Structures are given as C-alpha cells and as structure tokens.
Computed example of a mutant assay.
Amino acid sequence: MKSLVAAAVLMLAAGTALAADPTAPVREVIDVTAGNWKSENPTSEDVFSKDRLARLFSADFATAYAEASKHPAYDPPEGETTGSPFDYDPIAGGQDGCPFENIRVEDDGDGQVAALFNNMACMGDDPANKEDRVLLFHVKEEAGRQVIDDFYVVVDGNSGESFKDELRKIAAD
C-alpha cells in the first residue's frame, strides 16, 4: 500500500514538474513552425491561432496580437476582418527558407528560453547560411501555466526588437 501511495505521489510530482516546464510552449511554437517548413508534406498550421494564443502566450501578448491583427499584412479572406499582421514568418525570419535543422530549445533560467535552429542551409554555401537563427523567448507563469510573454531575434549576439512591441506598432498604424 505504501508503495502505491509513493508511486502516486511521484506521478503527481512529475506531472507538476512537466506543467512548470518553461520550454514547453516554446518547443510547441518551434515544432509547429518547423512542420510548416518541411520539404516533404509540410503542414500549414498557424502558430498564432486563437487556440495557441490562449494556451501558449500571455494575455498581454495575445491582446497585442489581436489588436495588430486588425491591420492584416494581406487582405483577409472574404467575410473576415482580421488576419496575420506579419507579411513574413516571424519565427523563421522571412518568406523564404529551408527545412529547420539542428533544433535546440534550451532553458536559460530566469524565464528566458533560447530556441536555436538553422533554416537557411539549403540556400547555398555562403557562411551566413550556415549560422543558426537564435530566438530568445521570455516565459512567465500565468494562470498556473508557463506562457510566452514576448520573443526577440538575436543578431550579432544582441537581442533585437521585441515582437510584442512590433505588434503594438502595427496596431498603432
């Protein structure tokens, strides 16, 4: 009986540890995006779908995205008034690219998660095409789960503009 209770406690503790994993929302965003860029049988999933915005992103980020989506980069489908505010894939960093290679998602501590991958290797032998794209995600706990509050591209070792700030600029235009 004691061993059953101990096993149940361990299972609950493991579930709690997984729920508190700050890399989980980042890993899903990267996996979905990588699936969209596969060379064979790519998916066509929206990283910023209503479901993912509610599950993976903070309320503040979701609000910024909703406001920016009122200013879509392209004409939305007939009958819709909102669409993606981006005219490029903000995770992949462009409209052109290659299948993601060497994906790593690392917990840097203090709510920062780094995602590294190469998505330019198929573009040729230029040394720049061999470099990893590096994104820094700020993750926080909200409503009892880990969510992405913002993310940044690292360029030449420095963190670039906040994507949440980019969304707010789009919404203000």
Rank of each mutant, 00 (worst) to 15 (best):
F86V: 06
S58I: 05
R52Q: 12
L56D: 00
G79H: 11
A68D: 02
A59L: 14
D75P: 09
A73C: 10
A68Y: 03
K70L: 07
T63P: 06
S84K: 00
F86T: 01
K50H: 14
G83T: 00
T82M: 08
P85W: 00
K70V: 06
D60H: 04
P72K: 00
A62M: 07
T81Q: 13
E78G: 11
Y65M: 11
G83W: 01
S84V: 04
F48K: 11
A62H: 05
S84E: 01
L56N: 10
D60I: 04
Y65S: 01
D87Q: 06
D51N: 13
R52W: 03
D60C: 05
A68E: 00
L53D: 06
E80H: 07
A73H: 06
R55S: 14
A66C: 13
A64S: 12
T82V: 15
L56H: 11
K50Q: 15
Y65F: 13
A62E: 01
D87E: 09
K70T: 11
K70H: 03
L53R: 09
S58Y: 02
D87W: 10
D51S: 14
F57E: 05
H71W: 08
Y65V: 05
H71Q: 08
K70G: 14
P77C: 03
R52I: 13
A66L: 08
P77M: 05
A66G: 11
D60N: 09
L53A: 12
E80F: 11
